[in-house]
Design a protein around this nucleic acid. Structure first.
Lengths: 169, 169
DNA sequence: CAAGATTGAATGATCAATCTTT
DNA sequence: AAAGATTGATCATTCAATCTTG
């Protein structure tokens, strides 16, 4: 994360400039490096399996899954964006693509004309049921097969805090 | 991750088909959902800060940082791909872009004509030193400010295992 | 033929600007 | 003016194919 230093950042006695940044400690690096690799590799692997099996990436899968779990199989765009951690723009493009495939359909909100509802179609539901088993198997093989119950509990305690922190702005 | 079920997947007594997949338990879901959000949001946030400050994403930053830490400030493409968890193709494109900016330069390997070395230029080094403080501050604010020493130790123990698991194939 | 690396085409994501409704 | 959502342009990433050297 930090550039290799040329010489110790010795400063004049009177120092108005910015303080030397607090670089990561070696204990922090021991968590940071694998975390960076994980956030790079895991989405890649999930995408690849789904793309081979279903022709869609993990983001698109999440949309189908969230709709499937929702009452009436429909959600507002803003809710979907929240649940999938996607930006409004990304979600809008993604729903376009899923609509082209016939797996979701947009319809206008009933109370507020600004909101758009996205509903899972019957074909979308069938597609999800078709591809879900292979996906959950992949998730098991990539992630949970390598974690003890304690590990899982640790992650369930730690990760939500990081998400809330990363979510800020 | 799983589709909402219509009816219990009751099967005939004689069952040749694939077994009902082992869906995630609620304890697993409590780790999985924030993990998915984290791998979506964290790269996004890191990218945004770096892009605003330096005009490059986090992947490009990693290349500069890895080169800066290497002996002679140079690495083979395959090593760089390993250290940054990038595919050879992605790395090649990224090095193109960094070369255009004048921050790295390619040169042929000395022993094996197949290998390409990428070296950090003086301008690249200066740029890295310029942008590193703001980046490390971002990493602290987004991640480490929210973790106890114990949390960090847990992650340093758990995450490498997940990376090795995700890295397989 | 395998290893190391690159290329171009196609897809996906991001940003800024925009539109409509409240 | 703010909330909800979309659009189009630009850039990044992926995949498959390719090229060169060992």
């Amino acid at each position: 994360v930090s550039p290799a230093k040329t010489r110790p950042a010795s400063r004049a006695v009177v120092d108005d400039g910015p303080a030397e940044p607090r670089w990561l400690t070696s204990a922090e690096m021991a968590a940071w490096l694998p975390l960076v690799h994980l956030v790079t590799l895991l989405p890649q692997r999930l995408d690849r399996q789904l793309r081979n099996d279903a022709g869609i990436g993990h983001g698109y899968y999440q949309i189908l899954a969230m709709l499937s779990a929702a009452p009436r199989h429909e959600l507002r765009m803003s809710e979907l964006a929240d649940y999938t951690a996607m930006s409004p723009s990304r979600l809008s493009h993604a729903v376009d693509a899923l609509e082209d495939r016939g797996w979701v359909r947009r319809c206008a909100g009933r109370h507020d004309a600004r909101v758009q509802l996205t509903r899972l179609t019957a074909a979308g539901r069938r597609e999800l049921e078709r591809i879900a088993p292979a996906h959950v198997a992949e998730v098991r093989q990539r992630v949970f097969d390598h974690l003890s119950r304690e590990d899982i509990a640790h992650l369930a305690r730690i990760l939500p805090r990081l998400v809330d922190a990363s979510l800020a702005t």
